[in-house]
Every structure is written in C-alpha cells, then in structure tokens.
Design a protein around this nucleic acid. Structure first.
Lengths: 240, 240
DNA sequence: TAACCGTGGACAACTAGACAAATCTAATTT
DNA sequence: AAATTAGATTTGTCTAGTTGTCCACGGTTA
C-alpha cells in the first residue's frame, strides 16, 4: 500500500464532507482559493483533487462560477408510452422542466420530412431542459404542426406539461411510433446546460409520437447526459 | 483542431440560425438577456459572440434597441449611365429612398465650382438615404441649379425619383461626366444613418451628371457603407 | 540523471453584479 | 389628436471574483 499523495488525501477529505451531508446535491463547494487555504496547499493541488472527483462524476465545475455537487444517475424507461413526468415519478424523482425556446419558426429539412404536414414551412418548436431532483438530465426539442396545435404555446406556458397541453388540444392519447438512439459528444453549450464537462457523451433519442389514428403529433430529439441517465426499454416495446 | 471557446460555439449557432433562415435580413435578434438564458451562459459571453458577428459585418447593434441582422453586400455599378433604381433592380434588390433635406440654400465653394452656373450663390440641395431591401446602403447629396430646376422640389416630393423628376423638367437624358472615388471613416451621424458602427469605412463618390449638350445638371456626393456595397464599373466606363 | 510531485505566478475565459445611456412603450396631459 | 411624461427595456461599460491553462522552478524519489 503506497503512500497517499497529497491530493488524494484532500480528495478523501472532500468525500468525507459530502458523505456527512455537509454538502447537499447541487450545492456549490468552497472556491479553490478557500480550499487551498484551508488545506494549506497550492491551488493546483486542490484542483488535482477536484479533477479526480469530477472524473468520478461526483462534482462538476463551471468556469467563472464554481464547483458544484452532482446528483446520482436516473433510470429513464423508453416504451410505447413515454411520459416524462410519469417516468421520473416512478423512479422516485421530482421532475422539473425549464423552457429555453417556445416559438413558431421556419422548419429545417429534417423536421419537414418528419412531420410531413407542414405547408408554409413553419413549425412550432419547444425546447428546454429536463431536471430530476434539480439535476439537469436532458435537453429536449419537440416539433409540432403549428396549424393543428397553434394553441399549444399558451397551453404549455400554463401547464408546463406536453401531455396535458396536448390533451387541451383534443389529443387524449398518443403513442411512440418509433425511437432511434444515437450517441454524440457534448458541445460546449450543451455541456453547460447539462452541467457536464465539454466532450462528455450524450445519449440522443430521435422519436415520433402519433395519435391513435396514425397521424404524426410530435417529432422530438432529446439529448440525455450519459452520466445521469440510463435508458431502459421494457418488453412491450413495439415498433409498428 | 481548435478547441472551441464557449462564445465561439454560440457565434456558430447564431450563424446556423441565420443560414437556416430562422432569422431574416433586417430582423431583430433576441435580446442579449434572452440569448444568455437560451444558451445558458452569462450575458457577457453572448456579447462576445455578438461582437464577433458585428466585426464580421453580419449584425449591427443599436444601444437601447437591440441587435439586428444586416443584409449581404450589394453590387453597385458605376458607368456613364448611373441610375439608382435601375442599378439595384438589376441586382435583384428592392430600392427605396428616404429624404433627409430638400431645400434651396447657399452654395459651398466646392458646389459653386462644380455647377459653375450659380449666380446668386444659391443651390437646390437634395439629400437622403438609399436602401436596398430595407438595408441602408448610402447617404446621397445632390446639388442642382435652382434657376433651371426650381420645379424639381415639388417633382421629387411626388416622384421620389431623380431621373423621373428631371424628365418632368425637360431633361430626357443625362450621362455621368466623371466620378471620383475616395474612402473615409464614418462619423457618428453618418454611422447612425447607415446603421453601422462609428469609424467604419465609407466609399465616397463625387460625380457630375451632364446633359447631352454638355451643360452640368447634377453635382452629387454619395457615401456608401463599405460593408454593404461593392462599387463596380463595366467596360464601357468612359471618362470624357 | 530522469521522472514525478507540489509550488508559484501570470494570464485567459467566464461568471456575477451594478450602473449608465439610449431606446421603446404606454399612459397621461394638453 | 398630438405632445409630454414616466416607467420599463435593452445595450454599453466597468469592477470584481472564479475556474482553466500555461510556463518555470525546486525538491524528492526511483
């Protein structure tokens, strides 16, 4: 058993603090300068310890702001009936959403093909961040037909829920027609939103939700933080 | 293999939006505050990205108002027959004019020499802004002999066109005797009119239009925004 | 000697907040 | 109806604090 390096001892002390709940999930750690004074070492040594904790997925650092404690991973089921709130509630988490954009704008080629109902090239785009217990776990981007769901903008603002807002628009039920899953690397902006480091892997699901009569309702693309989410599909998963 | 800074990624995303026509020429971009929320960064970081786009001549910001998308450069031919509307129409642009001043006033020495017909030291001065697709591209200043073209004031007010108004005064044709081209820096007033930043370069053309009999008709000085205009001359350009 | 670890400092990049200046909007007054 | 006024909005500027990156230096260890 080799001697512990200086930075390793510091990392363990920080872990002790975390284990003893002196620090809660999402909270900001003392600054590197404060920690270096407290432990009587150089800032670089503290940074080495924090880097270790970051690699283990325990903390996350934001340049210019501070180092923050992360929450543990979430299991996210994918099946024929995908409902954000329901999924997380079942996992014992508190689901939250934060809207980034909610607007009618020009459609991209990809979006046009997916919803194939677009006439004048406009779509209703709803994007934002999904949280579980305050921890950002995904960036979502939903596309709707503005002619059919123009009222959706105001409804989403009120409900903050897609399922409920679609219900207000007469869609009492919808199912997942298909889901494609890919992996990407986080660009700086996505990393920032998801509170992970630039270059970390993302799980990307592209999917289409349809009404019982088969007409397309929602074309969605979601980027999950691979550190925080495990996608799972149950047996009744059916691609029709 | 450059590592992308945060503001660089944001600048690229904004460029994507512009390229995908989600933002149209002349339109106002979302406010810095909205963009900072959308990208999950500090306002200063957004400003850094916008500053980059401004330096590339893609956007233009107006304090207290917003940041606006600029139109791509316009090609403006210079030859023996220079007609504002015709030039821009040929380039596929929609030409517009806005009058700033239209009056009879004392002539400067320079104007007196150019039009050499002035007796009592008065000239008819017509100045304004030229637009292409709503984008201001030039400040023009035309000087006429008030004795010969006194009726021009009312005609221009009606026609909003120099060529047509001269026609109403009996000038069925005129040609460009000579053109001198220089470059200057925009003072704050010119910059404001042209919606560019103070200190940006201007192309300045000084020219004389003459009647077929050789008598001077119009002495003009025009300041083009160098960001928005490329002056071009075709082969038949003749300095007589 | 060579590799490694920690120290020390300088600078860049980003965050955070405050305030000023210009503009825009809407209500009020004339 | 037009002008004025007051408040809110938006960009410009400034100061300060925090993390990221780079270079150089000295001491310890293999």
């Amino acid at each position: 058993m080799g001697k512990l390096g200086l930075w390793q001892s510091i990392a363990e002390m920080l872990l002790d603090d975390i284990g003893q709940k002196k620090l809660k999930a999402g909270e900001k750690l003392p600054t590197e300068l404060m920690l270096s004074k407290r432990f009587g070492v150089n800032r670089h040594t503290v940074r080495r310890a924090l880097q270790h904790l970051a690699e283990k997925g325990i903390v996350w650092s934001k340049r210019g702001s501070g180092v923050y404690l992360k929450a543990p991973p979430t299991e996210y089921p994918i099946g024929t009936r995908v409902r954000f709130s329901q999924n997380l509630t079942l996992d014992g988490r508190l689901p939250t959403r934060k809207t980034l954009t909610l607007e009618i704008r020009a459609a991209s080629v990809e979006e046009r093909n997916a919803l194939n109902v677009v006439d004048n090239g406009k779509v209703l785009a709803y994007s934002g961040i999904s949280f579980a217990d305050g921890q950002p776990i995904a960036l979502f981007n939903s596309i709707f037909d503005p002619l059919r769901f123009g009222r959706l903008i105001e409804r989403i603002k009120v409900n903050n829920s897609v399922t409920k807002s679609l219900n207000d628009c007469g869609i009492t039920d919808y199912t997942r027609a298909w889901t494609k899953i890919t992996a990407h690397l986080a660009d700086p902006v996505k990393a920032n939103h998801l509170q992970i480091n630039d270059g970390q892997p993302l799980l990307c699901t592209t999917s289409l939700n349809i009404a019982p009569d088969g007409t397309p309702i929602e074309y969605g693309k979601t980027f999950f933080s691979a550190e925080h989410v495990v996608l799972s599909h149950s047996d009744d998963l059916s691609y029709s």
